[in-house]
Design a binder for these strands. Sequence first.
RNA 1: CGGGGCGUAGCGCAGUCUGGUAGCGCAUCUGCUUUGGGAGCAGAGGGUCGCGUGUUCAAAUCACGCCGCCCCGACCA
Length: 438
Amino acid sequence: MRLSRYFLPTLKETPAEAQIVSHRLMLRAGLIRQEAAGIYAWLPIGFRVLKKIEQIVREEMNRAGAIEILMPTLQPSELWKETGRYDAYGPEMLRITDRHEREPLYGPTNEDMVTEIFRAYVRSYRALPLNLYHIQWKFRDEIRPRFGVMRGREFLMKDAYSFDLDKEGARRSYNKMYVAYLRAFQRMGLTTIPMRAETGPIGGDLSHEFIVLADTGESQVFCHKDLLDMPVPEETVDFDSDLEAFVQQRTRLYAATSDVHDAARFESEVPEDKRVTARGIEVGQIFYFGTKYSVPMKAVVAGPDGKEVPIEGGSYGIGVSRLVGAIIEASHDEAGIIWPSPVAPFDLSLINLKKGDAKTDAACEGLYAKLTAARKDVLYDDTDDRPGAKFATHDLIGNPWQVIVGPRGLEKGTVEAKNRATGAREELSLEAALNRFA
RNA sequence: CGGGGCGUAGCGCAGUCUGGUAGCGCAUCUGCUUUGGGAGCAGAGGGUCGCGUGUUCAAAUCACGCCGCCCCGACCA
């Protein structure tokens, strides 16, 4: 992408409304524009990051055996009346009246609808286990949206729903999601710690929140230090194997958010030098909720003995749009965002320091053509800006690498590669640069 | 929803108390110079001062109503 033809509205000054660093950087780097309280338009590079996160989530869900569908944003209120949640959910749920005086709602979550889909088609235990997920915009009319996309009213969420014949099966489904979540977050460059959590309005009796540690986190968290460096299963992990031992190994260690924190237990279970007290951002939550929806909605299957039983369910959410903010909270510096490569808007910034200089232009065009041909996402800064302005812009938007091309280096036949995260610079020949990045 | 604050050019703000030609910096556009860490000079464009009603010869400024946004709290992916 040539920057001169792109749409990258960056701001030199910080908008007054942004209080936390990720919100400030998202506005300054031109990722989002607020359209109303808690409602944002995604601008080109913000949209790219959002899609990359979404794709990682999708790949890891698929790997774990979940199946993608897409349910609508608007839902008929009848479904919610069946489960009693139409009244239970309260004013957080956006209720709408259509031209026929019907009262659909903008979905804050999809348990009711997915259960309706399930019961319409599945009659036998032989179809189980089943895990259906989708990645769709949700709306929750928060009393006070804040922190940009971290706490918006409209947000993109991956939500998965598992269906099993019995508790043991539900537990296996839960464990798959537990592992898939660790993998997905790790691929985004995040260390997350699953923490025992309250089950909230969705209900159930087994739940973990996945927390990213960040100084600016919204909640106080407590955990065992060893959880910070525990390995995450490799890509080759067999999701059909018994994951219980792995999950046990992690859940045995104390980890809790302030809602459910038990100071006495924390102190008795965790040696003093292993106690971590920190701030964290919740980026995902998994629940086992049993028959909470299957009983009222009559989602039943015939078991091996021919008797109908309500399915055992769980639901599993990941805040996809929130993750954009969470990743920035966890990875930035004074100059701007530092994207982990897998979610960066571009693989690298190619910076032409002297647009109009024949040799510099030629070197840049050559690199751009070859890198693009090698299917790299390159943001080629071919604007007329001065070098200082370009450095500031590319540090701000945070692509992992900057390949800096100017007359000074080209005299010696070199270009410079700057690592955004470490600031380390290397002089490379044009050929070496190609080998490195193509 | 309770408490507090703010709406003036794309962004950041002054002007409001004490009514009288709507300003500054950044950004944008043009020209010249400049060119390895957010350049300089000269010029230009851009505003129903959030909306409405009222008071007044006259309202960004005063009064009332409404809307929007931000912060603290309770609530939440």
